[in-house]
Computed example of a mutant assay.
Amino acid sequence: MTSRAASALDTPWDSPPDTQELIQEAMAWHFDPATGSPFWREQSKRLDFDPRKDVRTVEDLSLFPNVVDELRDARVEDLVPRGYGDIAELPAPPVVAESGGTTGAPKRVFMLPDVREQSWAWYYNRLVEHGIAAGDNWLGIMPGGPHMAGVLAQDTAHRFGSIFFTLDFDPRWAKRVMGRGAADEAKAYISHLVDQIDWILRSQDIRVMVITPPLLEAVCRRDHLVDLINEKVNTVIYGGTSMDEDTRHLFRTELFPQIDFVSIFGSTMIFCAMPQRPGAPADDAPVFDPPSPFAMFSVIDPDTGKNVPYGERGQVVTHHVTRNLFLPNNLDRDTGIRHPHRLGLPGDAVADFKPVREFGASAVVEGVY
């Protein structure tokens, strides 16, 4: 990477910079032909404003079109800002990450080492707030391959000084099977996943389990696995699909009353995952505070584009503003309840994420992830 002066873009996510300073430096970086990516250089030709002059605040990000669908076909090389220099000279290999493919062909982004470290460190610090202990073995029941979730879980376990176990898990196949209503195939695939969980829980000392709600429900259909989890596991970290209030209450109070549950919301398109706000009553819907201003939520009325009042449901819009990637105005497939950010940072916190039934021209199938 080429040398450069200190910048808001390089500030640790746990010490957020002035938001306007971050946005203005991001515009200067991403829209200078010498430092910006070929992707944004081409996009800028179609804009009717000058980002380096006209975009200075969070509100100004709404000037940009939602370009996220173009990431389904964009060349990864075209997403890399030229200011990073020769990729071969980076201190660690970059990660190509893909979305789950819930709403069509997967979208693809390029995570460079500096922003990956910032995002992973921020996530680790949030789990420390939830009392995750160092050295406890983890079982990651999350997809690997091109999915960020599996890489994040493994790297986070390493930060805790823990041994990480995982399994073969292809959520796209499960979604395809469920989407065409092949109930027997879906049941067989879920059984295949639970068998792998069974083998590990029987033989290993697992203390932290990272899992999706549908798979936790499937695990609970085997009574001996419920007993093993209660015997061995201290914390269940769950995410990847939504969980309703009744199911959450059942897990917390009847099936696993002595186990800590930590809900996670994550998105490849904002390069991060966020644990629920700590210290909230167990029966309350988890609230998620993003690492603003690097990743921000807005909760809007999709018909007007305006924020809904706090406490009301709207559709989620995300912004990502880092040196690695600029991705504003992404209308997400989820709706949520709008809350103020717990630290008073820009943008919204969100509770009770739920997918819309249709998104664009595609039906939304959550599957097992």
Rank of each mutant, 00 (worst) to 15 (best):
L139E: 10
A149M: 06
F39E: 02
E217C: 03
T335E: 08
V208I: 15
N324E: 13
D86V: 02
V287T: 12
V151N: 02
G83V: 04
R248M: 11
I237T: 07
V368W: 07
V58H: 03
A153Q: 12
P106Y: 06
I141T: 10
A149H: 01
D198V: 05
D334S: 00
R180C: 07
G145V: 07
L201G: 04
P340G: 04
A34Q: 15
D184C: 00
D227R: 14
H320T: 13
L327E: 02
G83L: 04
A97F: 05
P38W: 01
D10R: 04
G161L: 08
T19W: 03
L255A: 02
Q154F: 07
T19S: 13
R176E: 10
I211W: 04
P17R: 08
T166E: 12
V287E: 05
D10P: 01
M296P: 04
V365E: 13
T318N: 10
R342M: 05
V151K: 12
L193M: 14
A5V: 06
D50N: 15
Y123N: 06
P93K: 15
D184A: 15
D332H: 13
E59A: 15
W13E: 01
G314P: 08
H224I: 04
L216N: 03
P93L: 13
D301L: 04
R222V: 11
T102L: 02
L139V: 12
K45H: 14
D10I: 01
R338S: 03
A285I: 01
G347N: 01
R108E: 00
V233H: 02
D114C: 00
V210K: 03
R126S: 03
R207Q: 14
D184L: 13
L112R: 10
R338A: 11
T212R: 07
D114S: 13
M1W: 05
A149S: 14
G347E: 01
D136M: 08
G266A: 14
F49P: 02
V321C: 05
T35H: 06
F49V: 11
P302Y: 01
A88N: 11
I87W: 07
V233T: 01
S3R: 10
V226S: 11
D168F: 09
P12M: 00
N137V: 09
A363E: 13
D284K: 09
D155E: 15
E25N: 05
A186M: 11
N230R: 14
W122Y: 13
S162E: 11
H341A: 06
I206K: 05
G239K: 05
L345E: 05
F353D: 00
K107P: 03
R252L: 12
G179V: 04
